[in-house]
Design a protein around this nucleic acid. Structure first.
Lengths: 215, 215
DNA sequence: TGTACATCAGTGAACGCGCGTTCACTGATGTAC
DNA sequence: TGTACATCAGTGAACGCGCGTTCACTGATGTAC
């Protein structure tokens, strides 16, 4: 028997349990970080025995991979939704910052310290490009006349990477700088590196993004 | 008996062994990351039994703390040395990037994903301020006329943090932006986020720093 | 210079722990006639 | 609608592992007279 979703009850149940496992995993991640993520601990929180988890995830790595994928997906959806409802670059910056602050460890799962040897699944780079595509559109919209820099010329010869986007070097440049500047402030903020410095990171981000589209 | 250093032979030996332990720890860190850092594995590499390490470090956390301290110290010394031999902001950027690339995990030990709950020792913030002090000096030297932004005004009321440095808001602002911009590009580069994008991160950094002191 | 003692580096055995994972099995849920 | 069978979620016991850490002890190195 299949219901309206085209899913059998068993499939629905599976998805629900998978979701709950991931939910608990996120909680554990938020409070103790990746290294402390333990399958047995998660199982206990979900209310079942350790081995039962293996019905839903093939291994610990498999679970983490799923979390990474979800993190990317969530970020891409958030950014796209913001853009679609008319957010400009400063707006996108605020959106991304809010998203990151709502779960710092999720942000770091994507952009944090890489584990030597570990390679993220291929499809995450596709989602990553998806985010960049939105940024490119937003940067295209906020065009501004600026003198060309050597880096612009450098991008000129490597533009293929952006795919089918009709992006000028200046647009590419702006998208890259938006990304790196935002990440620079945001990751240091989330890591607590600004503690005691008594300034509002939000204003610095606003200034950095503003500098990109004006001046 | 004490020698010219004011150290007894035993003290000298202790320091040497401590240094070798840390050396092996760095190697392990570089190839497997913090979570995989194991006292027993290090001991084996140094050529002694596991428990012997406890003569030199009180615990695993104690060793990691020492590594963090050394990382900060190394960065501060490197930056100061570069500045003292006349490096300007672009030069400092290159110096820091080289330092980071020579041992990415060391960089991430300082600026990477924070472990929830763990707090770095207090004196590291002092070393951190030391680095910032050099940046402030370098930024002071490369003064440039720019229109005042809202963030400049914001810094105006929180300037105390810089300590005794005679820094204007604009200088503070430039030092902060230098730090966050450099970290933004550098950390994404080291994390491999630019893979396949076919541009030279070095040029982006140069451009970002250049934008700070000109234009 | 030689002897008695104290210091301290390093060993090997052991403890307890929690981890990821496998396996044989039970019992409930769905499917086919 | 009822029965026979297949599917599959979940359990409990068990395995092997490597971890950090403690402890009692040995043997070498330094110190004091």
């Amino acid at each position: 028997m299949t219901n309206a979703d085209g899913q059998s009850p068993r499939e629905r149940y599976r998805d629900q349990v998978r979701a709950e496992i991931k939910q608990r995993a996120w909680e554990q991640l938020a409070t103790a970080g990746v290294p402390a993520l333990s399958l047995n601990a998660i199982a206990k929180q979900v209310g079942m025995s350790g081995p039962a988890l293996y019905r839903y995830f093939a291994s610990r790595d498999d679970l983490i991979t799923a979390l990474i994928r979800d993190a990317y997906r969530s970020l891409a959806d958030t950014v796209r939704a913001a853009f679609d409802s008319g957010a400009d670059l400063p707006g996108l910056a605020v959106t991304i910052r809010d998203w990151a602050r709502s779960d710092p460890q999720r942000y770091f799962l994507i952009y944090g310290t890489p584990v030597p040897g570990y390679h993220a699944p291929d499809d995450t780079t596709a989602i990553s490009r998806e985010v960049m595509a939105v940024l490119l559109k937003a940067c295209h919209a906020s065009a501004v006349d600026k003198p060309e820099t050597p880096f612009d010329k450098h991008l000129d010869s490597h533009r293929d990477w952006a795919g089918d986007h009709p992006a000028t070097s200046a647009t590419l440049h702006r998208a890259l700088a938006f990304w790196t500047r935002l990440h620079g402030v945001l990751s240091l903020e989330l890591a607590g590196q600004f503690t005691g410095m008594k300034f509002d990171p939000d204003l610095l981000i606003a200034d950095e993004v503003d500098d990109l589209t004006t001046r």
